[in-house]
Simulated scan of single mutants.
Amino acid sequence: AEMSFYQGNNLLQTVFTCLYLHDLTRLQNPYLIVYCYLTLKLCSFIRSMVQSTDIVDEEDFNGIIYSFRLPDGIKEDDVIRMSILAENELTQKISKAKGKQLDDVTPLQDDPEKEIEYCEALLARLQLKRGLLNAQVQFEKNTKKSLATAKKATMFAKLQCKRILETHESFAAAGVATPDGIFDPTVTRRILFHAPPNTISLPDFAEAMQQVDSILKDMLSFVVWPEYETIPALLENLVKFSDTEPSIVSRSRLYRMLLSNNKIW
């Protein structure tokens, strides 16, 4: 659903089809809370970035949030620190479980034998979101030092993509079923009379991961742009972003890098 929002579909028909994201104060699982904050903060950041660039028509990217809320008042660094704390706890759980110190481990699912696989899969997902958010924050600073940090964060996120693909089956095999009704494509129509009347087709897991990987590849290509010494070399790498259906996120990031404060980079 999140990847569909980055392709231009509105929040009501994508991200907010997940009931967890409607009110984070009602959630009890600390890792789920952190993941939801990362998701909403990343959506908020991307939404602001795309809207500030004005590179797409309104019908191509709908950033209207209607009566829902994004955590605009929470700083990105605070969400990143929140994620790091949760990741450290998961790492400790994994370490204790591998050391057979099961009495010190509060299981996150029903089967103790699958606790390690489950925690590793959850850890990879938190780290992917944190890497994506941190990279975007560093890109926004647009300095030589921040671009180096953005490269590290992007490579870190790309590594988590690989881990997620490797642990996807283990995550499902851990017996953790998605609660019924958590994803409801019609929920916004029932609570908001002005919500769009139709539902949209959302990408499946494999398609979503391909889209994430594509965004990360674009980000890795951006960090080396300051090394280009000639305009032709730079223009040669701009060609792929002139497609009729380019990545909105990548093109917006490109705009922010090349045009800052109304000045060409």
Score class of each variant (00 low, 15 high):
N262G: 11
T53Y: 01
K129M: 14
L165Y: 02
L128W: 01
Y31S: 01
V176K: 06
D110Q: 12
S221V: 04
F183E: 10
L192I: 13
E166I: 09
G8K: 03
D111S: 15
V224R: 07
Q136I: 14
S247A: 08
F193D: 15
L70W: 06
D77F: 06
T154M: 08
T167W: 12
T39C: 13
A195K: 10
R47M: 05
V56W: 06
E207L: 07
L165C: 07
S52R: 09
D60Y: 10
V187W: 15
L38I: 03
K41C: 05
D184L: 07
I84F: 15
D60V: 11
Y228A: 12
F156K: 05
K129G: 07
I164Q: 05
Q109K: 07
I164E: 03
V137L: 13
I33L: 07
A121M: 00
S52G: 02
P196I: 10
G99F: 13
S214D: 04
L126E: 09
G63I: 06
T154Y: 08
Y66S: 13
I231G: 04
M3L: 13
V50Y: 08
L133R: 02
I116P: 02
S214V: 03
D78V: 13
Y228P: 01
S201H: 11
E120D: 09
L19P: 06
C161L: 14
N262W: 06
T230E: 03
P107L: 04
Q136F: 11
L102S: 03
Q28I: 08
